[in-house]
Design a binder for these strands. Structure first.
Length: 475
RNA sequence: UCCCCGAUAGCUCAAUGGUAGAGCGAGCGGCUGUUAACCGCUAGGUUGUAGGUUCGAGUCCUACUCGGGGAGCCA
């Protein structure tokens, strides 16, 4: 397949589009559209995923395979084209490739039923052809932005001295407490071994005990935090909740940093710095894709992202948030009062209407938060709160949830007792509080949710390659 | 899981309980340095699945599946 001539370089289409007219080049990709001109030319828009833009290939009718192949090209065909990069005579592009040869690498079987034809498709339909949807403008752009954000997150932490910790996917501790878990088992479902009291005998299972897929790497990563000081996880997470919304998946990716010798203020600063770094990086590196999202997906995404990059987030205690909500003229379906958890409508009001930008709400009532969150001193009215924080973003809602962790063993044990949890199940977690315990804090960022926020994509199922949701694990 | 709405050609959608249509895509032809191209012709259907009501069901009823909007769980 490689060209014999050493003077012809194979370029990605992104490189070809950046190149100056003059040189010879070979490009490869998939046909987006073909238009014939009776002036003796065909125009082929070619895309290889290296960037948003297509390269226009000009195919003159004196090519030997013009009638037999070029004129039969349809959307989706894979080709290799070699020719000279020239200044375009038409509008709409600076450079184009004047082909001296075009090889068809792969035909489209039946153009009439090619699932991703050159027309508009709904996202709902494209989910049914997830193996081909990435060939569309939208899903190609999402894939590139997803990669860009992932790399930005790794760079952000790496540059600040964090270590990436690979916490386990399979866990035997039922104590993660963040939702329903998928079971991991090699037991025979048709002939399950039983204990005398009729329950499945997990001692005969693969791990010798009941095992699940993780719902969070937090408890594990805290152990590494209390030795390496600054750590984070970035991996898949599983929740067996029967959630049917545009912002929940059964399998999603999560980033969970954890910092030692740190309090909630440090935690909030880290969350904000990270989100602003992500915004800045995407604007710099994926301007082509962002221009598309701005134009076709959601007006204002670029401005919104620019605002995240440029301006500090709002911060507001839970108690102050309640005061704002109580003073609001908006009628809420669920009346709000101190001690109640914020409903979606309340979060939306705060971030979309009151502050009109990302806001960090912190110091929540202890009664609505997890056992591991650090107890604050009671306020003047004696109300008890924990050092927890949520980052709320317009259009998405909760994008980050985090807290300072309870590092005092006696306080932690009291909380475990209050919540009816068995201390023995948490023996290694409690050990961290016995051996050189230090204040530490962390948060969880939903990876797909930050992609939704950045791109303006409305449904979380469209920002992950192959979404897993209740009743759907196709592909 | 709960409430509301929906499922008809490859795709997006029409169709009073009485002969299933259009646009786009596709095929063929015309025109043109074209670019959401344009003009003409052609093909394309077990109306999501399973039951029921009716002389007759795309249309009415029931259940299920999937999708959308909202809610809960959360990231």
């Amino acid at each position: 397949m490689a060209q014999a001539s050493a003077s012809i370089s194979t370029l990605s289409i992104a490189e070809a589009l950046r190149g100056k007219p003059g040189g010879m080049a070979t490009v490869r990709g998939w046909v987006r559209t073909r238009r014939d001109s009776k002036a003796g030319l065909s125009f082929i828009n070619l895309n290889d995923g290296s960037g948003f833009g297509d390269l226009q290939i000009v195919a003159p009718n004196d090519l030997p395979n013009y009638a037999s192949a070029i004129q039969r090209l349809t959307t989706g065909c894979a080709i290799e084209a070699t020719g000279e990069l020239v200044e375009s005579q038409g509008q709409g592009q600076l450079v184009e490739l004047r082909a001296s040869s075009i090889t068809v690498v792969g035909w489209v079987d039946d153009p009439d039923t090619y699932p991703v034809s050159a027309k508009r498709h709904t996202f709902e339909y494209l989910r049914d052809v997830a193996h081909l949807r990435v060939r569309t403008n939208t899903f190609g752009a999402v894939a590139r932005v997803r990669h860009c954000i992932a790399m930005a997150i790794h760079r952000f932490f790496h540059e600040r001295g964090f270590y990436w910790v690979h916490t386990p996917i399979i866990t035997a501790s039922d104590c993660e407490g963040a939702g329903e878990m998928f079971k991991v088992s090699t037991l025979d479902h048709l002939n399950t071994p039983r204990t005398p009291d009729g329950k499945p005998d997990f001692s005969q299972d693969f791990f010798g005990r009941e095992a699940m897929l993780t719902v969070s790497g937090q408890l594990n990563v805290e152990t590494y935090c209390c030795a390496l000081s600054k750590v984070y996880t970035f991996g898949p997470t599983f929740r067996a909740e029967n959630s049917n919304t545009s912002r929940h998946l059964a399998e999603f990716w999560m980033i969970e940093p954890e910092i030692a010798f740190a309090d909630l203020q440090d935690d909030m600063q880290l969350a904000e710095d990270m989100l602003r770094f992500i915004a800045k990086t995407v604007l710099e590196e994926r301007a082509d894709d962002m221009a598309f999202f701005e134009q076709r997906i959601q007006k204002g995404v670029i401005e919104r992202l620019q605002a995240v990059a440029d301006t500090a987030f709002e911060r507001c205690t839970y108690t102050d948030a309640i005061a704002i909500l109580e003073a609001a003229k908006t009628k809420f379906e669920f009346p709000i009062h101190w001690g109640a958890d914020l409903q979606s409508e309340h979060e939306r009001y705060l971030t979309e209407e009151h502050f009109k930008k990302p806001v960090i709400v912190y110091n929540y009532p202890k009664s609505i938060k997890a056992f591991y969150m650090r107890m604050n001193e009671p306020d003047a009215q004696g109300r008890e709160t924990v050092a927890a924080m949520d980052v709320l973003a317009p259009g998405i809602g909760e994008i980050i949830g985090g807290s300072q962790r309870e590092e005092r063993l006696d306080v932690l044990d009291k909380r475990l007792d209050e919540m009816g949890l068995n201390k023995d199940d948490y023996w290694w977690y409690r050990d961290l509080r016995r051996y050189g315990s230090v204040p530490h804090a962390g948060f969880g960022l939903g990876f797909e949710r930050i992609i939704q926020y950045v791109t303006g994509m409305a449904n979380i199922r469209d920002v992950i390659p192959f979404p897993r949701t209740p009743g759907n694990a196709a592909f």
